[in-house]
């Protein structure tokens, strides 16, 4: 009966990690800083959005609707509409932001949303210019 001494003893080296600091991110308390380029939720700079519906056209998931905003933000908006995104459809491929002619539609690095009602996932992109800013 040959005993594999190395095979028996070497796994025991794992016990040494008992006193190492855990690698866990205790999430709700400590948040990992997500890099700026991350494809999170949408933001839309309404001052420059021209309502051209390019985003609506390229979206393969049919996730973007053009709707009227509560007030007029941009006088040059050709259709008077702004995009609203259905987060029951979106796949965060960022094709819509790639084609946006004025570059107003962007993806933020905020990306968590949990809700108890599945009807609450129609998302109006927050109106601010740069990623990471608070909504004005």
């Amino acid at each position: 009966m040959a005993i594999d001494v190395k095979g028996v003893l070497s796994p025991l080296s794992a016990i040494g990690t008992l006193f190492e600091h855990p690698r866990t991110l205790t999430y709700p308390e400590v948040k990992k800083d997500i890099p700026i380029g991350y494809r999170g939720f949408h933001i839309n700079n309404l001052e420059t959005c021209v309502g051209c519906a390019s985003c609506e056209e390229i979206c393969m998931n049919d996730a973007i609707d053009m709707i009227h905003p509560d007030k007029e933000y941009n006088v040059k908006n050709t259709s008077g509409c702004i995009p609203r995104i259905d987060y029951g459809r979106c796949c965060w491929c960022s094709l819509c932001t790639d084609v946006c002619p004025p570059g107003s539609l962007k993806l933020d690095n905020i990306c968590t949303h949990a809700d108890c009602d599945p009807d609450n996932f129609l998302y109006m992109p927050k109106n601010h210019k740069n990623i990471g800013e608070e909504a004005s």
Binding site: Y27, P28, K31, K32, Y87, G88, C90, C91, W92, C111, T112, H113, A114, D115, C116, D117, P118, F121
Partner: peptide, 15 residues
């Protein structure tokens, strides 16, 4: 509870 994302990050799952 519904969590949106494609795929939702583990943070979102914990949310």
């Amino acid at each position: 509870v519904s969590v949106t994302g494609c795929m939702p990050r583990p943070e979102a799952v914990i949310d």
